[in-house]
Design a protein around this nucleic acid. Structure first.
Lengths: 213, 213
DNA sequence: GCAAATTAATGATTTATTCAAG
DNA sequence: CTTGAATAAATCATTAATTTGC
């Protein structure tokens, strides 16, 4: 959160992961605050091109940054709502207990429901239709842009100012037709990759690859 | 199930989504059966290049195909295991009931648990460490290759023939550094995209894009 | 037989979760 | 603990099978 730290990897230490410079981070956050959430291919290219002025960066960095930022913003909100809901439930429960107490008159009550037993059941993974519609819980850094919270996005909620430009219609189509074009030190423009073993159709070559990281 | 139907979209109807030709499908399935699960960038390029001989195809098609195939294979297995487990539970439950019955002696029992009430609670989303290690539930079309089913892929299961070539080490790293290189009708080698509106930092331009579908 | 209506498959995207560097 | 990177799960959307009424 302190944008004064200049931890730019100026030396040639090949860091295994991108370390955004303060300027890059500032610009990205500015764009996010401006409403950009899921830039498409060309947008990512543009952003990357712009940000590459301030330091080494690839398209996928930009892509991942927006993905992560959006997701973590969302989960922050979710946590907030969750705790609020829990507090509400606890409040209701408390009132209920009080009322029971008043109804039954004073007698020794043996806590049927401890308050800290309510928390853990709210693990993640809400069953799809959970988030409320109205945008409560405003954070300090989120204006009224975007944030349509489209779970349940199959509902006919398209009745707003449908001012889709034709270009914007190609959204979400191809976000992988790109990234690191021209930015990531183009080690060769042709295909330098040694031919690899071509087509291990015979079940001999490469096994699964998902566990290699 | 009848692989004799040749419904190749030979006409120029610009289909919005890729429709694999029988040959392409056959090769892909062969590779999958051969153990390929998550091809990396260069592999995808190669596969795409090869398959493009049999029809129009892009890199992302190959990528998506493997993603989906893997996922749906997994979920098929999961479903199978699930039903097996359910049957087991039902069996246990049945025995338990029988035993209760024998213990309590013959008396009129009013079905506490209807069997069809057990099924729906097993919705999808198994909590990560679920698949068994040993390859039970063999399907008709799965030889003994690959299939390491690496959930829990943070476990130190690297004790096999660690013959990773240095190139293969870059696995999983960059699966988005590519796709549609040279294959998808290279409409231009440079950057033909019109300049777009550059940098809507001022919160005026593009809103979120996730809800456009 | 043959379209319209329904359903099943599956290609394409988005979202959630996890891993690991720093 | 934060967050970049990566993968898996869930979901959307379109196309092919299949059914159904005629």
């Amino acid at each position: 959160m302190s944008p004064a730290a200049a931890a730019v990897s100026s030396s040639s230490s090949s860091s295994s992961r991108w370390c955004p410079t303060p300027e890059q981070l500032m610009i990205l956050e500015e764009m996010y605050r401006g409403g950009t959430r899921t830039p498409n291919a060309s947008q990512i290219q543009q952003i990357t091109a712009h940000l590459s002025f301030y330091g080494k960066i690839e398209g996928k960095n930009v892509f991942y940054w927006f993905q992560n930022h959006k997701a973590r913003d969302r989960q922050k909100l979710r946590r907030k709502l969750m705790s609020k809901q829990i507090m509400h439930q606890q409040h209701v429960l408390y009132n209920h207990q009080q009322q029971q107490q008043n109804n039954n008159g004073p007698q020794n009550h043996h806590h049927h429901l401890h308050s800290h037993h309510l928390l853990p059941q709210f693990s993640h993974y809400t069953p799809v239709g959970f988030l409320p519609q109205e945008g409560g819980v405003e954070d300090a850094s989120t204006p009224m842009v975007g944030y349509s919270w489209n779970h349940c996005h199959h509902l006919p909620e398209r009745c707003e100012v449908v001012e889709d430009k034709p270009m914007a219609r190609t959204y979400g189509r191809d976000w992988m037709i790109m990234l690191d074009l021209g930015l990531t030190s183009p080690n060769s423009c042709s295909r330098p990759l040694k031919t690899l073993e071509l087509f291990p159709v015979t079940a001999t070559g490469l096994r699964d690859t998902t566990s290699t990281n």
